[in-house]
Design a protein around this nucleic acid. Structure first.
Length: 418
RNA sequence: GUGCCCAUAGCUCAGUCGGUAGAGCGCCGGAUUGUGAUUCCGGAUGUCACGGGUUCAAGUCCCGUUGGGCACCCCA
């Protein structure tokens, strides 16, 4: 038997209805904040991600699905979408369009990791980018929007964390400080952190190893090493969040795994359905990304991405069974003539916007059983008597009440709230 | 990439000391005429994940593979 490949999965009804709901809420929220959708290809030249995400990142060094095209070009299934959006921004000279570019996307990403709860090799992200401004006002609006989106999904109890990671100019000074303090004690660090000291010292900050904790706590804060502009930027972001009544905590240990982040970074975690992968959403500012991808004009930006799989898990837990498919009317014709007659009724009611299932002619008992199993709100019995009288037997499946209704009154009866 | 746990019917799971496969739910059919969700009766569930080994005999013990779960690394 051929099965879905490791780390991928089928999303079947009724689970799909939660996905649709989340996506509808997202689109609605994006529209309110004046974002427009962008769709970029699902694969790109490998160099885009290598340069955009960072040559030394885990994503690039060990998680990408990279393959050779027939002409030997190296292509990669996108592991994230920010680099692609910036590529499109540069390629189509979107800087020439008046105002900021506020773009959102929903779609699959691919990373070859070991699957576990909340982590898949093909997963979906809902994300957005605002390109063309380095104002902290934009940061605050973006963060407000993601909170609005989670609220609209009915997610409660999430925690917003923010931080500033400085700039490519200020960060090396902090990294130097980490080395100065940790190099002498490196033998006492966890094996992972000893490795990180070489590859990405910032990562040591959020190490979970118990033996690292005393050394981490002794480290200075990254905020002590921020340049003047970054410090001012961060203060204003905080001010704007407070103006909006958005609860947050500053987490100076929060470092993100992609090289392009500058200044503001943020993350939302939710305890509950998500196991160890409790991060629902992450994002940050990337003021130098466009130029590192070859833009001749500066294009500062900020963006985020929501792990849709994780958001769906959280929404499902908060509202179990709430987004099921609904069937307004099940039509049960009793014989061939009734079926042909009923098909016209079905067509009319479907055009009127109702969800209608037209059963083939057959035994009424079986039809009623099926109507019940399908969760139909109403059943419509169509037989010789009904056709002769011009009134059809409409049965409310919840109450069992059954009344004769003329064709033109059917919609009115079915649309009545029980 | 590393570690631990797991794999029996569509689903959730029993399966004793190694002796030839079971339950509940669901599914299908029936209980005379045109009425479901609630009754009663009946039926089919299956390469016991796959491959090898030990044994007279393997769902059961051993090895490998694949898949899944959880955690680490890392991230959404």
């Amino acid at each position: 038997m051929i099965r879905a490949v490791k780390g991928t999965r089928d999303i079947l009804p009724p689970a799909i209805s939660v996905w649709n709901h989340v996506e509808e809420v997202a689109r609605h929220t994006f529209r309110a904040y004046n974002y427009q959708e962008i769709r970029t290809p699902i694969f790109e030249e490998t160099a885009l991600f290598a340069r955009g995400v960072g040559e030394e990142t885990d994503i690039v060094t060990k998680e990408m699905y990279t393959f050779k095209d027939r002409d030997e070009a190296s292509l990669t299934l996108r592991p994230e979408n920010t680099a692609s959006v910036i590529r499109a921004y540069i390629e189509h000279r979107l800087d020439q369009i008046p105002g900021l570019q506020k773009l959102f996307y929903i779609g699959p990403m691919f990373r070859r990791e070991r699957p576990q709860k909340g982590r898949y090799r093909q997963f979906s992200q809902i994300g957005a980018e605002v390109i063309g401004s380095d104002s902290p006002a934009v940061d605050a609006e973006v963060i407000e929007m993601v909170c609005t989106l989670l609220d609209a999904c009915g997610v409660n109890g999430y925690k917003l964390m923010i931080n500033s990671v400085g700039t490519p100019l200020s960060r090396p000074r902090f990294v130097a400080a980490i080395h100065k303090q940790l190099d002498p004690v490196r033998d006492w660090l966890s094996a992972d952190s000893q490795r990180r000291l070489e590859t990405n010292p910032l990562r040591i900050l959020d190490s979970k190893a118990p033996e690292d904790q005393p050394h981490i706590e002794a480290l200075p804060s990254i905020h002590d090493y921020l340049d003047e502009d970054s410090r001012d930027h961060f203060a204003r972001v905080r001010q704007y969040l407070e103006d909006r009544g958005i609860a947050y905590s500053v987490n100076p240990r929060m470092v993100r795994g992609l090289d392009y982040y500058t200044r503001t970074t943020f993350e939302i975690v939710h305890e509950g359905a998500l196991g160890a992968q409790n991060s629902v959403l992450g994002g940050g500012r990337y003021d130098g990304l466009a130029e590192s991808l070859g833009s001749r004009v500066p294009a500062p930006g900020i963006g985020f991405s929501i792990g849709e799989d994780r958001l769906v898990m959280t929404v499902e837990q908060a509202n179990p069974g709430r987004f099921g498919h609904s069937l307004d009317l099940f039509i049960a014709p009793m014989d061939e003539d009734s079926f042909r007659h009923a098909s016209l009724i079905a067509r009319q009611l479907r055009q009127a916007g109702l969800v209608v299932e037209l059963n083939p002619a057959g035994k009424l008992k079986r039809a009623m059983e099926l109507a019940s199993k399908l969760g139909a709100r109403f059943a419509l019995l169509v037989g010789e008597n009904e056709i002769a009288q011009g009134k059809y037997s409409l049965k409310n499946m919840a109450t069992g009440d059954q009344t004769p209704v003329a064709k033109d009154d059917l919609k009115k009866h079915i649309c009545q709230k029980p």
